[in-house]
């Protein structure tokens, strides 16, 4: 029906960007295009109608993507973006699919109904010496503002993480030949993620815009300085990030020392002074992946999200390994 087609065209496009290891450039291109086209990025499948897979997914990651796809209701479309230059045409094709009533009716008819309900949660002793439900809540791999390829299996009581286990997934697909993202852009990307999970959405948006402008080499010095000054000055950020994800081990990479606030301030400083040393190293990623369970246990879920965004381990630089319980 024509009315359905018109309504489909009228609806907002809300992409859920699932980055797989090796898909950094693809994600950067997708985020830039989404911003330029005025699409607001979705935080979960329920508010998304476009699943964007940034990078070439390894067979290991496909089941996760499939489950996310199954929990999206029609109208929906999937765009596979293997690389940055392919982003525009892949997104155009997906949008055309979103606007096509016949194909959307097929999607609606093929919606998968999930099987049996899972069991009720089990109880265990909590920190107060009482018994409380334990919930298994995995974080990653398909999660906005989360490092690609990282999965943290947490056991929660209330919103407090009782135990955390790190798993790396889909790393076999990474190509070593990929050119790394320039230091300034990578730092702005990390800052944008921290600001985004901390709820400073305007500053996160500004950081992403600056990141894209740095990549095209036209970032105005003044706006970089102003953004960095705002990040350093904000009292709300200071209050919400101080003491989170504190790293004070002697063996920790020096770039990670301090709490989320100190790391954010250092990154903003480096960006405004145009430091070009690479912010992310393989040994730092290895250390983080091993230290994560220890850093996350006993913390609240929200704190864990900020801590991981702030450490931003470059998981894709690591070999494919299962890391032991912390």
């Amino acid at each position: 029906m024509d009315l359905t087609a018109r309504l489909l065209r009228w609806a907002d496009i809300r992409p859920l960007v699932a980055e797989v290891p090796g898909g950094t450039w693809a994600r950067l291109a997708v985020e830039r295009l989404a911003r330029e086209r005025g699409w607001r990025v979705a935080a979960c499948p329920a508010e998304a109608n476009l699943l964007v897979v940034a990078g070439t997914p390894h067979a290991e990651v496909e089941p996760y993507l499939l489950r996310v796809w199954q929990s999206m209701t029609a109208p929906r479309a999937r765009a596979d973006v293997p690389s940055g230059p392919a982003a525009a045409s892949a997104l155009d094709a997906a949008v055309a699919e979103l606007h096509d009533p016949a194909r959307q009716r097929d999607h609606a008819a093929s919606a998968v109904h999930s099987g049996l309900d899972p069991e009720m949660a089990d109880r265990d002793a909590d920190r107060d010496g009482l018994a409380l439900d334990q919930l298994t809540v995995p974080l990653g791999p398909v999660l906005p503002d989360w490092p690609a390829g990282l999965v943290v299996h947490t056991v929660l009581q209330g919103d407090v993480i009782q135990s955390a286990r790190v798993q790396l997934t889909g790393l076999a697909a990474t190509r070593a030949a990929d050119e790394p993202v320039p230091a300034a852009a990578a730092r702005l990307d990390t800052c944008a993620r921290v600001l985004s999970v901390a709820g400073a959405h305007d500053a996160a948006l500004a950081a992403r815009r600056l990141r894209d402008e740095v990549l095209t080499g036209q970032a105005p010095e003044r706006r970089l300085q102003r953004w960095a000054a705002w990040v350093r000055r904000s009292r709300l950020l200071r209050w919400s990030l101080a003491g989170i994800g504190r790293v004070d081990d002697a063996d920790a990479p020096p770039a990670l020392a301090g709490d989320a606030l100190a790391r954010l301030h250092r990154a903003a400083e480096a960006v405004s002074h145009r430091h070009d040393d690479p912010p992310r190293h393989t040994d730092a990623a290895q250390w983080m992946v091993e230290a994560l369970p220890r850093l996350l246990e006993g913390r609240e879920l929200a704190v864990a999200r900020i801590a991981v965004a702030s450490l931003d381990p470059a998981v894709e630089t690591l070999a494919h390994t299962e890391v032991a319980d912390g």
């Binding site: 699932a18 489950r67 999930s114 899972p118 949660a121 439900d133 298994t136 995995p138 791999p141 999965v151």
Partner: peptide
């Protein structure tokens, strides 16, 4: 009967 979003995992508990 859509499942909750758990980063692409199936829920283990209700």
């Amino acid at each position: 009967g859509t499942r909750p979003f758990l980063s692409g995992h199936d829920p283990a508990e209700h």
